[in-house]
Simulated scan of single mutants.
Amino acid sequence: MGERDFQNEWLDQYLELNSSPEPALLKKLRTQTVEEFSQHHMISGHVQGRFLSIMSKILKPEHILEIGTFTGYATLCLAEGLRKDCKITTIDINSDLKNFYQPYFTESGYDNQIESLIGDAIQYLEKTEETFDLVFLDANKKQYIDYFELLVPRLNPGGVILADNTLWKGKVLEEIAPKDKMTKALFDFNQHVAQDSRVDVILLPLRDGISLIRKK
């Protein structure tokens, strides 16, 4: 392990120790995700999960949209800020995951507030007339600009998009244009949002980078 890796691991531990504790159900969900999925790094985890929870509690959204459910960890974090008569819609293209996360949704007590959809988020956004107060974007990185352009008109004034992985392991920091398509897509997305006069944005170095985008 190199010095930088050690520092990052130490920092992660320090952040966890000095953040609100991870709820027991979420810890159980995270542990099972690590045990059963090779792509377990895709889960939000303790610190980012507490960030999502706090953002939801601050905004008190009536309707949350999550693009990319995975195993449902972020879904439950975001649901913590919902009022009893409000909901979160979460959509994922992978139908096989539902059997994994549904028992956790039921156990959480938020089940009646979670609308879980299987399908393509682009197609959903093109057809829906719903509007949103908070969006967590964590899906196909190559389509981030497409998601963004469909989301902004559906976002209520003052609404927030949280776009995950916008530092992409630091690859977007390359001085020359990124060569691989995934990095290039996120590099372009970051520039695209920063230049959009409809929104305010700050890119936070939390975990793999998360862009906090607010509609004016």
Rank of each mutant, 00 (worst) to 15 (best):
M1Q: 05
E3P: 01
D5R: 03
D5P: 02
F6N: 12
E9R: 14
E9D: 14
W10F: 14
W10G: 07
L11N: 11
L11Y: 14
L11K: 04
Q13P: 00
L15R: 09
S19M: 05
S20Q: 15
P21D: 13
P21T: 06
E22F: 02
A24L: 12
L26Q: 13
K28D: 01
L29T: 10
T33K: 07
V34F: 08
Q39P: 00
H41K: 14
I43V: 15
S44E: 00
S44K: 11
Q48D: 05
S53M: 10
I58C: 15
L59R: 08
P61N: 13
E62H: 07
E62W: 02
I67V: 13
I67Q: 02
I67Y: 02
I67H: 11
T71D: 11
T71F: 10
T71I: 08
G72L: 13
Y73P: 06
A74G: 09
T75E: 04
T75S: 05
L76V: 04
G81D: 12
L82T: 07
L82N: 08
R83I: 02
R83S: 15
C86E: 13
K87H: 15
T90P: 04
T90H: 05
D92S: 14
S95Q: 14
L97C: 12
K98N: 11
F100D: 08
Q102W: 02
Q102R: 07
F105N: 05
Y110K: 06
N112P: 00
Q113L: 06
I118V: 14
I118P: 03
G119P: 03
A121D: 05
I122G: 10
Q123W: 01
E126T: 10
E129L: 13
F132Y: 02
V135G: 02
F136A: 00
D138L: 00
K141Q: 00
R154M: 10
L155R: 07
N156L: 10
D164Q: 05
N165S: 10
L167M: 02
W168Y: 15
K169Q: 15
V172G: 01
E174T: 11
A177G: 03
D180H: 04
D180R: 08
K184R: 12
A185Y: 07
A185V: 05
A185N: 10
F189T: 11
N190W: 02
Q191T: 14
H192V: 07
H192C: 10
A194S: 04
Q195D: 09
Q195S: 13
S197M: 08
V199K: 04
V201N: 04
I202F: 00
L203N: 12
L204R: 01
D208R: 11
G209E: 09
S211E: 01
S211Y: 00
R214I: 11
K215E: 06
K215H: 14
